[in-house]
Simulated assay, not measured.
Amino acid sequence: MTALPASTIAEPDGPARARWADSDEAKGLMLVSPTLLYALALLLLPILIVFAYSFWSQDYLTIDRTFTLANYRTALGEPIYQDLLWRSLTISLVVSVITVTVSYPIAWFISFHGGIHKNLWLFLITVPCWTSYLLRVMSWKVILGYQGVLNTGLMSTGLIDKPVTSLLYNSNAVVITLVHSWAAFAILPIFVSLEKIDRSLIEAAHDLGDNKFRSFLRVTLPLSLPGVISAFLIVIIPTVGDYVTPKLVGGKDGVMIATAIQAQFGKGANWPLGAALSVTTMVIVSAMAGAVVLALKFFVRRIR
């Protein structure tokens, strides 16, 4: 049997590649690729730089690029960093759970009972976001202060004889401020998820004998779970690294890990340790967020 020439075997590949190059898929990929590479350069490159710094060491202003795990041993072994990291994770988790819990009924009401005024409700929800984040934090400092709005109101009603000092400069003040600051960002993805639910599915559940609460658990909540997960991630990821809120309303009992990271990159002049603290926090938060997401999915499957 005579073997075919190599040129004859390779011929089909050429036309195939030409057809693929002229396809909509190739044109779309070529259109997206520059933007994707640009986004990766802006998002991934800084993370890789911080990751590399975490394995180096620094003596004053001199960076020693010799590989070392000393920064991670310090970040995970020093009691002060363990305490700050644990407090940050706890506060962030509490803030996320409260924010999603508070935001869900609001989003549900707008979606199912907003009627023609849905856009108005959404507009009102986003109004606080028009102001500076710093201004919103400072407003809670005025509300919770020693002679603030809350203490003044309680004293005027006779519920307390003197101002309460435990309202401000603690972890509770940080939680309250962060919940208020991120509630709007949690409401919107939950609302979008609820809007996508086919209302005929809920009617079918009622026709099959489910009451309103059971149809909510078996239909509405599972179908809106993507929005709940998105809202949870939107809140937990930035709040664990929040620096402004603990600085202004947290006091010594509300200090979080971001303060220690900023100190190492600033006055401490130890960028590798600051990078190790950042990477450690990022990894732990990612693992905790993944665990919570899996727990939510398991919970929804159990109640259906």
Rank of each mutant, 00 (worst) to 15 (best):
L159Y: 02
S181M: 14
F185L: 13
V192T: 14
K196L: 14
G145C: 12
V164S: 03
S181V: 08
M155S: 14
C129V: 07
F191W: 09
Y146L: 14
W182K: 01
G145M: 00
N170T: 02
T126K: 10
I125M: 08
I125E: 01
V174C: 00
T152K: 12
L194W: 14
G153S: 12
I143P: 05
V164T: 08
F185E: 11
K196E: 13
L167H: 07
I160W: 06
F185K: 09
R199K: 13
W121Q: 02
V192L: 15
S166F: 05
L188S: 02
T165M: 09
V127F: 06
T131D: 01
F185C: 09
L159M: 15
P189C: 07
Y169F: 15
W140S: 08
S156V: 05
N172H: 12
V137K: 06
T177E: 01
R199F: 00
A173K: 04
T177N: 06
T131H: 01
M138T: 14
K162G: 03
N170E: 01
A186I: 06
G158T: 07
I143D: 02
R136A: 12
W130P: 05
Y133S: 10
S193P: 10
I190P: 04
T126S: 15
L124R: 08
I160S: 06
L122F: 03
T126L: 14
C129S: 13
K196D: 11
I125T: 05
F123D: 10
L168Y: 09
T177F: 06
L150E: 04
V179Q: 09
Y169P: 06
K162H: 11
V137H: 11
R136I: 09
S193E: 10
E195L: 02
A173N: 04
I160Y: 03
I143V: 14
S166I: 04
N170V: 03
Y169I: 00
F123M: 15
D198P: 13
S193G: 13
S171G: 02
C129M: 15
L178I: 06
V142L: 07
